[in-house]
Simulated assay, not measured.
Amino acid sequence: MTPSVRFLQCAGCRFDSPFWEGPAEWAVQRNHDLWQTFETVLLLCQAEKADFLFLTGDLFEQEYVRKTTVERVAQSLGRLKNTKVFIVPGEKDPFVSISAYRLALWPSNVHIFSAGLSPVKVPDQNATVYGAGWTAYRQEKPFLEGFQVAEDGMIPLMLLHAEVASAQNSEGFIPLQTENIASSGLTYLALGHREKWTGIQEAGRTVWADSGVLEARNFRESGPHGVIVGEIGPGSPQLEFRELGQRRYIEKTLPIPANPESFVSKLVAETPPAERERDLFRIKLTGEAWPAEEVAKLWQKKLADKFRFIELIHNQEEAPPQIKLNFRTPGETTPGEGNSYLTLPQVFLQKLQERQSSALSEEDQDHWELVGKIGLTALSQGRIDNEN
């Protein structure tokens, strides 16, 4: 009887990335959240007795990653004694000459794919795992064009940092064509790059799915985030999405209220206390009657007491500047309290986040992310290496 193969799949950790939407001090908490979620992934591998862990791209943020971070990830993966780990470098962490993947000695249970599709045979699981990593910041050719698995009786699996042609493509991506997936002969194709879980998809006899990023980084990535837990044996692959993300970005659109007292009470009543303490909220207010300054301050005071983080935005182009209702965790200080002041990078990030939150399209968001990347690199006296 053909043995079953159990696996976990996740993507988009982007360790050491400074880009978290919210106030500058929020990044410290979100980075802690990311590590906690990653540790949960490793524990889930052990609990599920996973044969494979598929990391489908953007494990690191190449321009900002630290050697200590890469070593910590490598050591953590080495603890999975009964799980083979397969990694494909992606758009944010390509396998270039100064790649993050070259900064650590990786344990024997980890395989990192580089240029060109290549197979790794795993006889114990009667499986062949194919993969190809990014080796530049732009994809030069399609991954699956003309590809077919070897007919050797083994279960053919593949992981790629890629997306299918029906998705909205980013610059630098060459999308996968569904007909190439269907003709590949693969049993399962594990993808990375999408922001959210795609659900279970099929192309011919090949099942494919993208888990989405492990932790949300902005309000465009609202909804649940986590991993795919799968089992492949006789018959079709069985896949299940497990939410592991520590916090959600939640956005609501509401009309500007006539009565601010009832507005605050209703919003609090409709939001469970656990969510108010845990998650980040953005309220888009529609309508032309923007409240007077004293009313806005009343909302700010009342909502800031009830939510860990919340911001109000008037949902019109000609609206006044955003009212941001920030939070402070215990022990933190703000400018003017003691000797703690915002650093220049923190000020830069705050201004950048204001631009990002008012961006009207994904292209605008990508533009401001690039601006932030260049700006933070300059402030840290670093450099941007383009291997392409």
Rank of each mutant, 00 (worst) to 15 (best):
Q9R: 01
A11W: 07
F15L: 09
G22W: 03
A24I: 00
L34E: 09
L34V: 04
L42V: 01
L43E: 15
Q46F: 02
F52Q: 01
V65M: 06
V65L: 05
K67D: 13
R72V: 05
A74F: 08
L77P: 01
V96E: 14
R102P: 02
W106A: 03
G116N: 09
P119R: 05
Q125E: 15
A136S: 13
L144V: 07
L144Y: 10
P156V: 06
L157S: 04
H161E: 12
E163K: 01
A165C: 05
N169H: 14
F173K: 10
A190W: 02
G192P: 04
H193E: 13
G199F: 09
V207R: 06
A216D: 09
R217G: 04
G223K: 00
G223H: 00
Q238F: 06
E240K: 06
R242N: 11
G245H: 03
Y249P: 03
I250K: 10
A258V: 11
E270D: 14
E275H: 07
R278Y: 09
L280A: 14
K284Q: 15
P291F: 03
E293A: 08
V295S: 08
L303G: 05
L312V: 04
H314F: 14
E317I: 10
Q322M: 14
G338L: 00
L342Q: 04
P345D: 10
F348A: 05
Q350G: 08
A359F: 05
Q365S: 07
W368R: 00
N388L: 13
